[in-house]
Nucleic acid binder design. Structure first.
Lengths: 241, 241
DNA sequence: TCCTAACTGAGTACGACGTTCGCAGTAGTG
DNA sequence: CACTACTGCGAACGTCGTACTCAGTTAGGA
């Protein structure tokens, strides 16, 4: 059993003695990630993953104590490999780059929206990312607590925003229909809301949106919101220096 | 089977002819909500809920087509009953009140953090809430699209922030230990990160936080971030009027 | 008033899930 | 070479969401 240490991060991958394991954490994690990317996170079962690896299901518990730990490995692996952003020395540009990178990463791996709770999920790669992000606002005269508030606020906006962007997309995927068909199943109810006359503003939202569910529209809303959040964060610097 | 309409919201609760159902959607929903509040969302199984109601598990499918629909009912019920905020006519005060109300609601019902994807989960109570929130920024000279961006941005911040606040709390709960014991299981790993010397800023975070996990500290961070976000949203009005 | 179509309740069953147990096999150590 | 600590894994347990089926019940139409 791989059940000694408190978290998986301080438990050694290999124990000293017996035969060498036929797989590595990295290999198993990679297989789980591609499985989640291609068939959705709910398709990542210990059995299915074992099949993918040509292994018995119970064997996976030699590498991982619980499924949760597998998810932790997956999250940290993606944080390490697929989160890209640039550091230029201009804090606003850098935080914007981080926000875009975080959003893009989650959109590439929709299952990341739920299990990765930002700063609280503390694998080594995740830690490195936030170390770097904190670095972009270091030396601007802020207390460490204030720096943390800045990063957490930005992080919360991005994750919350992308979570909303994804939820419709996920509903479509689960229904098995294509986007057009799915929207038609929703239509009668939306219509009944409008006809009730009790939602005039939401009605304007539905009617005035020229391209109702253009992906660029969501990106647009993200970018606008992001600039507002960055505007707000800039206030922290004025009061500090 | 309760499987005719596309969503549960346009499917009548009672069909015309036969015997009256022995329960109502509202009753079932309320039982599920208290079950989720007291024993966690993962304790809400169709079987457990059926026991709570003194009913066979299969009977629940007379009221609900899939478990997802039960969750939808739960979310919308809580949005209707437990989300409180005040409308004064001062947009900033009103949005702040909404943000606090939303946060408090999710903290009271931690399971709401995940399944309720904000604007996309569109039960009648949810719709009413967002109608009201849009109303607080109506008539300020903004296009409906811009109003939507404002609300979505605020909503994203609150949900993302509360999600992070909850994730640690949930990890503690799942471990079965109390907070003190749980923190001690995490300690060796945190220590090893610090000792590696590769995370100087995160180390400052750990050391400089005077009361490491005071709930007021989280509330503080929320309030500070919220004011920054509101600062940023205020910019939308200056360019509009 | 009665018949019957339409509905409700639920026992049973199916397949999938996470996880545990116990055992056969293997590789380093003394 | 024996011992020990490990690895792989078939089988099994309990739980889950859900479909099938059918007996019992009721309200509308004759």
């Amino acid at each position: 059993m791989a059940t000694s240490g408190g978290t998986i991060w301080d438990r050694p991958e290999r124990a000293g003695r017996g035969p060498a394991p036929s797989h590595s954490r990295e290999e198993i994690t990679a297989a789980a990630v591609t499985l989640a990317d291609t068939r959705g996170i709910e398709a990542v079962s210990m059995r299915a993953l074992a099949v993918q690896l040509g292994v018995g299901a119970a064997s996976l518990y030699r590498y991982v104590a619980r499924k949760d730990e597998l998810i932790e490995l997956m999250v940290d692996a993606v944080m390490g490999h697929d989160l890209q952003f640039e550091i230029s020395g201009d804090w606003r540009r850098d935080l914007r780059s981080f926000a875009h990178g975080l959003r893009a990463m989650i959109l590439r791996h929709p299952w990341m929206a739920v299990p990765s709770a930002g700063l609280r999920n503390f694998g080594p790669s995740t830690a490195q990312v936030y170390e770097q992000v904190l670095g972009t606002i270091d030396g601007l005269g802020l207390e460490i607590d204030e720096m943390l508030v800045m990063v957490e606020t930005l992080d919360a906006f991005v994750r919350g925003r992308v979570f909303e962007e994804l939820s419709e997309q996920e509903a479509v995927r689960r229904s098995g229909l294509d986007r057009e068909q799915w929207m038609q199943t929703q239509f009668p109810y939306i219509q009944s809301l409008i006809d009730s006359g009790r939602y005039p503003l939401l009605t304007r939202v539905v009617f005035d949106a020229e391209t109702p569910h253009d992906p660029d529209r969501l990106k647009h809303g993200f970018d606008m919101g992001l600039e507002r959040v960055l505007d707000g964060l800039a206030f922290m610097l004025t009061t500090a220096s």
